[in-house]
Design a protein around this nucleic acid. Structure first.
Lengths: 146, 146
DNA sequence: CGAATGTAATTGTAGATACAACCAGTGCGC
DNA sequence: GCGCACTGGTTGTATCTACAATTACATTCG
C-alpha cells in the first residue's frame, strides 16, 4: 500500500525535518572537533555571545540566541562551574550579568583554529549558497530584534 | 575592553550558531502548532519517514534522519507506546521493522492542515531563498546516501 | 506606605539528543 | 559444530531543550 498523498507531500516538502536534520549533522561535526577541549558547540555558542556582547543578563543572552531562559540558566551553570563564565550582581536584585572569564577567553582563543576548520567542513556540507542564505536570514532576524 | 579579533570573527561568521538558532526557532513554531495533538515535531518527523518509506528497521530510519540509533530507539518506544508505530519481527532475530499503524496514519492525516500552516510560517521566517537552499542541500544529501 | 501587578531567574518535569558500553543474534572460517 | 568477529539494538549516562510552576525582587497605584 503506497503512502497517502498527504503523507507523501509531508515527506517531500517538509522544511522542519530538513532544518532539524542539518542541525543534528552540524552539531555532530562541531562536537567531534571540540571533544578534545571538553566543551560542546552549545556551550561555545553561549561563550562567544557573552564574550562578544557581554556582560549581559541571562535573559538577554537567551533572547539573542532564541533559547528558553530556563535552558540558558542550566547551560550557564555548567559554564560557571567550569570557570568560563562569571555571574556578577547588578542593581536589579532579581538579576545579574554573565561575563566571560580569562579562562573562558583563553578557551575561545584555543578553539579558534578548530572553529576555522569546522567552518570549512560545514561549508562543504551545506554548500556556499545555503551558508549565505542561512547567514542572511539570521542576520536579518538579529537586526529586526533590536 | 573590546572582544578579541578571533572572538569577533566567531560571533560574526559562525554558521553553526545560526543553524542551531533556526533549529530552535523552527522546532518551537512546529511544537506550538502540534501541542493540541499531543505530539512533537521530532516524533512527527519519524512517523512521516516510516509512513512514507516503511516498514523499515530502526537503524535504517536513524540513518535517513541522521540521528543516533540510540536516540531513535527511545523515540520509537514513545511512538509505539502511543500506538502510532508497531514493531514487527523479521527474519533477522536481532532486528525488527517499524511500521505505521492505522492510528499513526490517522494522526498524520489530522495533522496535515496544521503542517500546511506551519510550512507557511516557516517560509515567512526563513525566506524563500533559504527554504530552497536548505531543501536542495538535504535532497542532495539524501540522494548521495543511496 | 502597602497591596497588586509585573519581571527575572530558578526548579520540576519530560522529551530529544548522542557517546560508550553492553547484549543478542548472525555469519564466517575452520 | 564451534569459536569469533560483525552487526543491530538497547541501556547507562550526560547534555540540551522547553513548558509550567515557583520564588524573589521591582514597580506601580491607591
Amino acid at each position: 500500500m503506497p503512502a497517502p498523498a498527504k503523507v507523501r507531500q509531508m515527506a517531500r516538502e517538509c522544511i522542519a525535518v530538513r532544518v532539524r536534520l542539518l542541525n543534528r549533522l552540524i552539531t555532530g561535526v562541531c562536537d567531534d572537533g571540540l571533544r578534545p577541549f571538553g566543551v560542546r558547540v552549545a556551550q561555545v555558542n553561549i561563550l562567544v555571545a557573552v564574550a562578544h556582547d557581554g556582560p549581559l543578563p541571562p535573559g538577554e543572552v537567551a533572547k539573542r540566541l532564541v533559547m528558553d531562559k530556563s535552558t540558558l540558566s542550566r547551560d550557564a551553570d555548567r559554564l560557571i562551574a567550569n570557570g568560563w563564565l562569571t555571574a556578577e550582581p547588578t542593581d536589579d536584585g532579581r538579576s545579574h550579568t554573565l561575563g566571560i572569564t580569562p579562562e573562558g577567553l583563553d578557551l575561545l582563543e584555543r578553539i579558534h583554529p578548530v572553529w576555522v576548520a569546522g567552518q570549512k567542513k560545514l561549508a562543504a556540507i551545506l554548500g556556499a549558497d545555503t551558508v549565505g542564505a542561512i547567514s542572511g536570514t539570521v542576520n536579518d532576524l538579529w537586526a529586526k530584534m533590536k
